[in-house]
Design a protein around this nucleic acid. Structure first.
Lengths: 116, 116
DNA sequence: TTCCATAGTTCCTATATTCGGAACCATGGA
DNA sequence: TCCATGGTTCCGAATATAGGAACTATGGAA
């Protein structure tokens, strides 16, 4: 099991961030990390909406977020703790993460209204 | 040759926008349209940076931008005119496009400094 | 008209990505 | 030592992307 790779902040590229967040599941994961501060395990996240995401996919989603520079993961005993690298990334790309998370939040609330 | 399809603004989704702009070529095309107001043809854009983009790829890039709701294209005689749907999209997703374009611009200027 | 150049699209195939099941590894108890 | 838990890795199937070649549409020139 390889150690986690985290890019230095100056190596973080916009295309990687956009690619990572162009998947709604990954965007939801990041949103959850941002609102709760830390997400302690993949399984905590598994119940994102109603759809079940397989473990292997989830593991890959975390990897993509990590390698895009959006989160930092550390193994802590048996589980993994993930936190957002918000301050760094937001300094490098001002407003980017916020605008993206807001965009998804807006659409989600539309959907909630239309199906209630 | 099918007519162009443009999604209604309320059907525009964040993931499509992020996916479209996760390609630096497409981001550069959009940036060019935003700064010049209109881009009048694919070939005007062909000289983006130093890399030559084949016509077929270029055509596809415009299609992706169009279907993501980012640009509006109209055939005008022999050529195509493209303009950004900035106002609409920015109202729906405030700050999103600007933050993305700025992020790329920042990285580009870094690169310019490091190679000068 | 007919012919040609230009601008762009479509088609097609080689290549690259993504998804997810199954097998695996590492850690912390019982 | 053994098991449960939490993740990762591997791998094949499905999907998406890139770009060359052939095609279409338009406007002008002869």
């Amino acid at each position: 099991m390889r150690p986690f790779f985290h890019p230095a902040i100056e190596d973080v590229e916009p295309q990687a961030i956009l690619h990572a967040l162009s998947d709604p599941n990954r965007a939801a994961i990041l949103a959850k990390i941002l609102t709760t501060g830390v997400v302690e395990a993949c399984s905590n996240v598994a119940a994102l909406g109603d759809r079940v995401i397989p473990k292997s996919s989830l593991s890959n989603h975390f990897k993509v977020l990590r390698e895009a520079g959006l989160i930092r993961s550390e193994r802590h005993g048996i589980e993994m703790r993930n936190h957002a690298r918000f301050a760094e990334v937001n300094e490098r790309f001002p407003g980017l993460i916020g605008a993206i998370i807001n965009a998804y939040a807006g659409v989600d609330s539309e959907r909630a209204v239309s199906t209630e």
